[in-house]
Simulated scan of single mutants.
Amino acid sequence: MSPHRRNPVLAFLRQREIPVAGALVLLVLVTFAVNPLFLSPQSVKDLMLNATIMIILAVGQAIVVITRNVDLSVGSIVGLVAFGTGSIFDVAPGLPIPVVFLIGLVFGAVLGGINGLLVSVARVPALVVTLGTLYIYRGILASWAGSTQYFSGDMPSAFGALSVDTLLGIPYITIMAIVVVIVAAVVLGRTRGGRDLYAIGSDPAAAQLFGIPVTRRILTAFLASGALAGLAGVLYASRYNSVGALTGDGLELNVVAAVVVGGVAIFGGSGTVVGAGIGAVLLSTITSSLTATRVDKFWQQAIVGVLILAAIIVDRVVTLRNIRKLRVSEARDV
C-alpha cells in the first residue's frame, strides 16, 4: 500500500464532499466581500432557514438515488402534507404539535410507500412511477385545496415559533434538519441495511445473488424519502406564511440537483447524505448570494445547470480513474 493511501489528510481531501464544501465557503466569502451585510446575524439566520427544507428533502432523495432510483414526487408530497397540516390545525387547533408531526411523517411515508411498492414489487422504473405520482399527488392537492389557503396566523403560535426561535443562534427547524442528516449518515454508514443500499446501487443483480433483500430495501428507501418529505411538509407550513395548491411546486428538480451537486452519483452506489445536505445548502445560498449582490436571478438556473454538469463530469472522471487503478493493480498481482 502506498504512503499516500495511508495518509489520512489526503484521504480526507479526496472525499466528494470537500469540493462542494469548498465552493460553499468560497461563495460565502465572495458575497461577503461584495456585501458585508450578507453575514449579519439576521442574514445568517435566513440562510439557515432557507436551506432547512431542502436539506431534509435532499437526505431522503439521496437515500433513494444511492439505490439507483429517483423520487420526483417529493415536491407534491411536501405540498399535500403542508396543506394537510393547515387543515389539521383548522379542524383541531388544540392538537399537540408532536402529534401533527407524527401525522405528517406517516402521511408522507404512505405516499412514498406507494412509489416504493410500484418500483420494488411491480418492477416499474422509478423515473416513470414518480413522474406519474408527481402529477397524481399534485392533482389531488389541487382538487383538495382549490382556492383555499392556510396562513401562518391560522396555526398555533407555538408551531410558527419553530421557525423563529433559536438555540445558540440556530433555528429549531434547522436543528431538526441537522439531526436528520446525522441519523441518516449513521444508518447508511454504520448499519447493514444502509450498506445494503450502496450494494444495490452498485450492482442490483449481484446484490440479489449475495442474498440482500433488494425488494425490501428499495421499498424502505422510498418510505424514508416519503417520510422525510412529510416532515419537510410540516416544517414548510411552519416556515412560510401560507400553504395552498401550489405549495412545493417544482421543488423536486432543485432537490435532485442538490443531491447530484452534493456528490451522490446519479447512477447509484456512492455518495453520502452529508454531501447531499451540503449541496442543498450550496444551492440555497446561491439564491441568497445573487440577491445580496444584485445579480439577476435568471443566472441562478444557469449556475445550477453548470454545477450539475460539473458534478456529473467529476463523478465520471473519478469512476474511470478508479477503474483504471483497479485494472493496474490486478495486472500487477498477476
Rank of each mutant, 00 (worst) to 15 (best):
I175Y: 00
M176W: 10
M176R: 00
A177L: 04
I178P: 00
V179T: 07
V180A: 05
V180P: 01
V181L: 05
V181K: 06
I182P: 06
V183K: 08
A185P: 10
V186W: 15
V186M: 14
G189T: 10
R192A: 11
R195K: 15
D196T: 03
L197K: 05
Y198L: 10
I200P: 04
G201R: 08
G201N: 12
S202C: 08
P204N: 13
A205D: 14
A206Q: 13
A206K: 02
A207M: 08
Q208C: 00
Q208N: 12
Q208A: 14
L209N: 09
L209W: 04
L209V: 07
G211S: 03
P213E: 04
P213G: 02
P213T: 05
V214I: 02
T215S: 12
R216V: 02
R217Y: 00
L219I: 02
T220D: 00
T220H: 00
T220I: 10
T220Q: 08
A221F: 04
F222I: 06
F222L: 03
F222P: 03
L223G: 04
S225Y: 06
S225M: 07
A227R: 07
A227C: 05
G230P: 05
A232M: 05
A232K: 04
G233E: 08
G233K: 11
V234Y: 07
L235M: 15
Y236R: 04
Y236A: 06
S238M: 08
S238P: 08
R239G: 11
R239K: 13
Y240D: 11
Y240E: 13
Y240Q: 10
N241T: 15
N241I: 12
S242Y: 10
G244A: 11
A245V: 14
L246M: 14
T247G: 09
T247H: 05
G248V: 09
D249I: 14
D249V: 15
G250S: 15
G250D: 11
